[in-house]
Design a protein around this nucleic acid. Structure first.
Lengths: 211, 211
DNA sequence: CGGTTTAACATACAAATGTATGCTATAAAT
DNA sequence: ATTTATAGCATACATTTGTATGTTAAACCG
């Protein structure tokens, strides 16, 4: 087969890889071969290995479907490397479970990107119910992205279970106790009994869909 | 190895699969085996096949790493399939260009998911600058996701260029003219000259990162 | 209790998949 | 024009990975 201008096919291979990898479906070498109609596996493999050398892809040698987007290719905000987007569950409500969260009312999944949250750490989305954080720009129907953390620093906006009820508030430590501050003068500061309080994690993002 | 209570391991296998699949890294049967310390591949495979029978996983027979989340497990907003996430450019500011937008101050890319916006239609993210939409929960530093549209319906929140300045407001049609309404009593309604007004598109999402 | 289901194990095989080597022809560079 | 680097082809091989068959023992249920 005739050869194409230098670098052109390579770019298209990378585009395909990015698309497939972001969709969570890493291709095999032979799938790449077929996608481009190469008559030889090796042609596809050469392109993939070249992309690895260029630092645009990473690979896990030997493993099937082992190519991944290199960190640098996933994205850059200014100088920073950025983690690949992941999908986190969107819950309609949360309830206390024996361990972890009871995944009830799963509404769907949200693509979330964060450099600070490790791949093994837990994230979830939660739909906002009251107006208690109105003045912080968190309105009913909004979605908060929550980073599950065993302990949360003072001043952060958190999701907490008070008894059976989930609530979003700003956390303030007062000695041994924890205060939950609303951002709305119509609501009162809560100072729940430590036994009934379970801080689930910290809000790292707020979203509103305006359909 | 002793057997665990019925259904318990199955659930944990599903959790693992969900996590890995959402992270874009479909495991092999043997990876599942190792993750749980099974001494036999078949044990892992039996669980996976069972999950397929239960409708919680789908699989592509024969393909390596061929297990996927079943649609019912991945997503359900009502009955709809959901579009794959895409990456849209985040702009620090927008400026009028000869045609389209001048992509200046590219800050990075954002993963966005929308069923309503076609794959060929243009989206961009824009960082919010003033307080003019405060009461709509759109605060300085927030990011709005904008759907580039030639015409925008009455009542939608839009990004518009008035002269050289980009602004976010609610659009109201008044006969021939277009009014741009702030959501903050401290700001005035704008009724720009049609020659100096260019509506760039509609805001479909608002995001705030609380890092 | 006794029968049935299910978790888990062991082993083998076939298909999918990654890898290696050698070759040809054309674009790109000097 | 000559050299060099790159695109692409062909084929073979080793490993990974999916699949099948048979066995054992514990959980579950009437």
């Amino acid at each position: 087969m005739g050869r194409t201008p230098t670098g052109q096919t390579r770019e298209q291979v990378f585009q395909l890889m990015r698309e497939r990898l972001l969709a969570g479906q890493p291709p095999t070498v032979r799938e790449v071969q077929e996608a481009f109609g190469f008559r030889s596996v090796q042609t596809a493999r050469a392109h993939l290995e070249a992309l690895v050398s260029e630092g645009r892809l990473d690979k896990q040698s030997g493993r099937s479907r082992g190519y991944r987007l290199a960190d640098s290719a996933v994205l850059v905000t200014g100088e920073d490397r950025i983690a690949p987007p992941r999908l986190v569950p969107l819950l309609g409500r949360v309830a206390a479970g024996a361990f972890g969260l009871a995944v009830e009312d799963l509404e769907g999944y949200l693509p979330v990107q964060s450099d600070r949250v490790g791949a093994n750490e837990e994230l979830f989305g939660l739909r906002v119910r009251g107006e208690s954080m109105r003045d912080a720009g968190i309105l009913p129907g909004d979605i908060v992205i929550v980073w599950r953390l065993p302990s949360v620093e003072d001043g952060a906006i958190v999701v907490a279970l008070v008894g059976e009820e989930a609530t979003i508030k700003r956390l303030r430590r007062r000695g041994e106790r924890i205060e939950l501050h609303p951002a709305n003068p119509d609501y009162a500061v809560m100072t729940p009994d430590p036994d009934t309080l379970q801080v689930l994690g910290r809000v790292i993002e707020v979203r509103r869909y305006l359909d």
